[in-house]
Design a protein around this nucleic acid. Structure first.
Lengths: 249, 249
DNA sequence: GCACATCGTTCCACAATGCGGCACACTCGC
DNA sequence: GCGAGTGTGCCGCATTGTGGAACGATGTGC
């Protein structure tokens, strides 16, 4: 159950996405694979509609639009994605800080699915599609705090990797932090994952209380004022609540 | 250069996207393939991170978040996508009709990459990722009107498939329509592609005048008032111009 | 509560399939 | 016009994925 050609093709697809528009030669250097192998892969992906030749330089490849039809369930239709957009923009307008929408993914991580930028010259940056660990981010905590006990156990039982001084690597500490998150309605990350980056997040829940996503405001350490935390937390939680309401409507 | 397993895996991926969350059995019925083959494919896609088991029913599969990291060049970073969002929302607020953002793709088509919904009970619907022909849609015409002559020739030389009474299937007629689109700054589709659906679109151009995308307002025939066309056209064109300006900034 | 239908999962021998070394075609820059 | 750099096409060999069949678990109807 290897399917070498498939896994390799997907790798190539991802590499093309990162480097597009890219040539065969560049890809062979990245992977250290024979030219013919890479090219065959590109042609196959092309015929499947997932790749296409660049308009100007037809020997360069880029991602085709077919991928857009393939999206995680949480984003299908108009549902969550559309519901989140306007509240996120309003929150950005109030705070002028970058807002992220993230959904939980397998393997103990959350993935950024949407973003609204602030206009500060110095700002945090996370691309759509970026993943980060559940146990070391505000969005992760917001989600984790509302998962079933069994799921939390599984995460806590795994290795809680440390990314710096502030990362919570102790299961007991993590649980008590989640308790606090549930109580006040929002999670805070102060340099737990990426140094110099802080975030405040709140969960978007479905009718059964299952966490679908988290909204987060993300800002550089340099602009983080602990005194404003209650205000920020309230605003983020309100935004999350509004998204929840819109989503169910 | 077949790569049967790869093309099949991508097909499976697309099928999962359409039917998620879906089981092995359902997929075997869709494809008429042996269970073991489908199962192996699913496991491979899963290990690559493109698929994941549903949280509640672990025998059902859904799209993983990995796909989000793979996006067409036009949407990479924040650029066009982010630039378009707020002007689109404003346009929707003014008109209360569904707004689409589409980009040209290979094979003579445009693809819907973003959408802002109106709140009418009866409205048009196109999912993100849907493709439609360049020669028979407002967005297509808006793009086509600003492509290089060689590209237009290629499209006009191909078969201009008809979808109803109104579709322009004659190359000469198409060219003169494109001329008109260039002149007034927006394109109009009145039942050319999907019956009962009208749209007005304007192009988003890059610095060199190359069309990157089109914004369109899409509405049911029943709400289309020919008298308001100049007004709608102007609003759409202004929105497109604003997106262009933001995108370059 | 038993037999039967149905589903997901696992195994394995066969041969079809994709692998990658090689050679060709082409385009630059010197 | 030569050489170094591309992208592309070919083809024999062995690796790889194939799919039938058997297994285990679940649940449905009698």
């Amino acid at each position: 159950m290897e399917m070498k050609s498939v896994t390799r093709s997907l790798r190539v697809l991802e590499a093309v996405a990162q480097h597009q528009p890219v040539t065969v030669g560049e890809l062979t250097k990245i992977f250290g694979l024979p030219k013919s192998t890479v090219q065959r892969t590109l042609l196959t992906l092309n015929e499947a509609g997932w790749l296409r030749a660049n308009r100007k330089d037809t020997t360069r490849w880029e991602i085709g639009a077919r991928v857009l039809a393939v999206r995680p369930a949480a984003l299908q239709g108009s549902s969550l994605f559309a519901a989140a957009r306007e509240p996120m923009i309003r929150l950005r307008d109030v705070l002028n800080e970058t807002i992220h929408l993230s959904v939980p993914d397998a393997l103990h991580s959350v993935v950024v699915v949407d973003r609204v930028d602030c206009d500060h010259a110095v700002r945090t940056f996370h691309a759509i599609g970026d993943t980060s660990p559940l146990h070391a981010t505000a969005s992760g905590h917001a989600v984790l705090a509302h998962l079933a006990k069994a799921d939390v156990d599984e995460v806590a039982a795994g290795t809680l990797e440390g990314y710096g001084e502030e990362t919570i690597t102790d299961p007991v500490q993590l649980r008590s932090e989640l308790q606090r998150v549930r109580k006040r309605g929002y999670a805070v990350n102060h340099n737990q994952y990426l140094q110099g980056v802080c975030a405040i997040a709140a969960p978007v829940l479905d009718g059964d209380g299952v966490p679908l996503a988290a909204v987060a405001v993300s800002l550089p350490d340099s602009r983080f004022e602990p005194g404003r935390l209650p205000e920020l937390g309230r605003l983020v939680a309100e935004t999350a609540a509004e998204i929840t309401a819109r989503h169910q409507a």
